[in-house]
Simulated scan of single mutants.
Amino acid sequence: MFADVPFDVKTRAGKIALSNEVVEDAEVDIVGEVKNQLQQLVDNTDNSQIMTLLTGSNFAKATATGVDDLKKVFNVTLDPALDKMFIVNQSGFNYLDTLKDSEGRYLLQPNPTAPSGFTLLGAPVALISDKVLANNSDGSFPVLCGDISQAVAVFRRNQVTAQWDKFDQFSQGLSVIVRNDYEVISKDAVINISLSAPAK
């Protein structure tokens, strides 16, 4: 019922110094913008670490040359109790967006509750940049199918955002510091699929 998951929390930090002249003379809220960018840095770190785990050797791999193969992974390979979804990159999404069933209906169906606004086989589809989730070396599209919340855990111990004045340099500093770790918790919760067009 329970499994021990060892983790090793690391401290990661990003910081920047802004001169008071820049802060006072800028026509925009530069301090607020930097704070937003620091939070984006945290989000990017989370995404990068999680994607590294999902696309590495931790999870089973499968190949698919069409929707029937995707259906088999979705219906048979993965546990039906999982809260399944699809994660695809831009190129894979574009390919899926052009597929139709035998009656000419597009397989991606509009759904405002899904992250991308679409569902596939009744499951939400999340769209990731090609820069974050690149195509496979053989040109096939990476498709992650499964329950991400059951596959990977983020052990977050602390996140601190700080702002301070540097009186000796007439400037101020901003930083964000996080202490966390990312670990696989269930290797059966996700399948890493290589999707390619069927041979003609």
Rank of each mutant, 00 (worst) to 15 (best):
L133K: 08
M51F: 01
A62C: 02
T98C: 11
L41H: 01
Y95L: 13
V76W: 05
N135F: 10
N44K: 14
D83W: 13
I128Y: 08
G66S: 12
P142Y: 05
M85H: 07
D69P: 04
L53C: 03
D147N: 08
R105M: 13
N58Q: 13
L78F: 01
N47Y: 01
A81F: 09
N89G: 05
F93S: 04
L120H: 06
P142R: 10
S91E: 15
T55H: 01
D46N: 13
D138G: 04
N94V: 05
A123K: 13
A151T: 07
M51S: 02
T65R: 13
A64V: 11
N58M: 14
L82R: 11
F118P: 03
G139E: 11
T98E: 14
L96E: 07
P112G: 06
R105T: 14
V76C: 09
S48C: 03
L41Q: 07
I128D: 08
G56F: 04
T98D: 11
F93N: 02
N89D: 14
G117K: 03
G66P: 02
P110A: 08
K72A: 05
N111Q: 09
P80R: 15
L144G: 00
P112E: 12
V73G: 01
N47I: 04
I148R: 01
D69I: 11
P142T: 09
P80W: 10
T77A: 11
L108I: 12
L144V: 08
T65N: 13
D46S: 07
A123T: 13
L127A: 08
I50E: 06
M51K: 01
V132F: 00
T98W: 01
A62R: 01
D69N: 12
Q49E: 08
L121D: 02
M51E: 02
D97A: 12
V42M: 04
V143N: 01
V67E: 07
P112K: 12
T45N: 10
S48T: 14
D130S: 04
V88E: 04
K71V: 15
T55N: 08
G66I: 12
N136D: 15
T65A: 13
P124G: 05
V125C: 03
G66R: 08
Q109F: 07
K131N: 09
T113I: 05
Q90Y: 07
P142N: 11
L107W: 01
T52L: 09
F93R: 00
N44P: 02
K71N: 14
Q90H: 09
L120C: 06
K61D: 10
P110V: 12
D69W: 07
